[in-house]
């Protein structure tokens, strides 16, 4: 198999789009099932999220009269593509499939912001005032959580450890490097700075996934799905798939960066799966035990306590805690 064919396979089939979408939709099902159990409902069957997407893809695409058609139609694809590439760049180092290092924290961070940016542009192009409000809220939210999220992830790169009297640090933004560092000295999470950063990062993931209490951009009962308001059919389906991809990627990224990644043994795989599921379940439980906050409250929360915790963690990591 040629190198290009191999890359295409990694990107589109495994561990990229096809695998990650499947995993993401299974996690969407898990989310809906856990939510249902918390709320004394029965919840959907496993196939439901898949059928939802299939149904959306069979529906008509409606172009709002006031929209900018090209941007409006292109943005779902951009969101999906960004999330898909991000997924393969996180999973490849985790699974150790690539021959040379591919995972770079900066690139992954940019790609993970793509779905939100695409949604903001798509909503702005739709010409709907409620979608515009949703987009403006999403911009503010993005500005809010990106700083603490980046700071928290950098903790893994800069954490200083004492190994046989020598001070070592991952000292790299490569995901493979961070993984190798953790295999050498144990997971980042085990130190106070790592734990703090992990907590800050999981709160940011809650907002990145657009879940309650940070679902302000969609806020059904305020602005009627907000940014997604004018989307239907294939466009909406692609955004849903992009969200599913993020649900498969972000917990895996957290496990990779903070929690030791994946080792190629039966127990290693089970432990990894357990960690990913645990993060998803925590996100779902937070979602179900909180009301939606106002956008100004969310912003104050991320720039205040969360950013503080992340920066303190970064400082502590540098000082060897």
């Amino acid at each position: 198999m040629g190198a290009i064919a191999e890359w295409v396979f990694h990107l589109l089939v495994f561990p990229g789009v096809l695998f990650s979408v499947t995993l993401g939709l299974v996690l969407v099902w898990l989310e809906r099932k856990v939510t249902a159990l918390v709320q004394w409902r029965k919840g959907p069957p496993l196939a439901q999220p898949f059928w939802d997407v299939v149904k959306l893809f069979g529906k008509e695409t409606i172009l709002p009269a006031d929209s900018v058609p090209r941007a409006f139609l292109a943005m779902p694809l951009v969101a999906f593509a960004g999330a898909g590439v991000a997924a393969s760049l996180v999973w490849l180092p985790l699974l150790g499939l690539a021959e040379r290092p591919v995972g770079d924290l900066i690139v992954v961070l940019y790609l993970l912001a793509m779905p939100s940016l695409a949604l903001i542009l798509g909503a702005s192009a739709s010409g709907n005032p409620l979608a515009a409000i949703g987009a403006s809220r999403d911009v503010k939210l993005l500005l809010g959580y990106e700083l603490p999220f980046v700071a928290a992830l950098l903790v893994a790169a800069f954490q200083v450890r004492d190994v046989d009297g020598a001070q070592v640090s991952a000292g790299t933004l490569s995901l493979e490097g961070i993984l190798a560092f953790q295999q050498q000295v144990g997971s980042v999470l085990a130190r106070p700075s790592g734990l703090l950063a992990f907590l800050a990062a999981i709160i940011c993931v809650q907002a990145k996934l657009g879940r309650v209490p940070f679902d302000v951009a969609e806020a059904e009962t305020e602005i009627g799905e907000g940014a997604l308001l004018e989307y239907g059919g294939v466009g909406l389906g692609l955004f849903k798939l992009a969200h599913a991809l993020q649900l498969a990627t972000l917990p895996a990224l957290l496990v990779l960066v903070f929690w030791g990644g994946l080792t190629a043994t039966v127990w290693g795989v089970l432990a990894f799966a357990g960690k990913v599921l645990a993060i998803v379940v925590v996100v779902v439980l937070v979602e179900n035990t909180n009301p939606r906050v106002r956008i100004d409250q969310a912003l104050r929360f991320f720039w205040g306590p969360v950013a503080l915790v992340a920066l303190v963690a970064l400082l502590a990591a540098r000082l060897g805690y």
């Binding site: 939510t35 918390v38 004394w40 309650v212 009301p291």
Partner: peptide, 16 residues
């Protein structure tokens, strides 16, 4: 009221 502020667990519990 729970549903309106995105707190669907309250919605389901109160109605139960």
């Amino acid at each position: 009221a729970g549903h309106f502020i995105g707190y669907n667990t309250v919605f389901m519990w109160a109605w139960k």
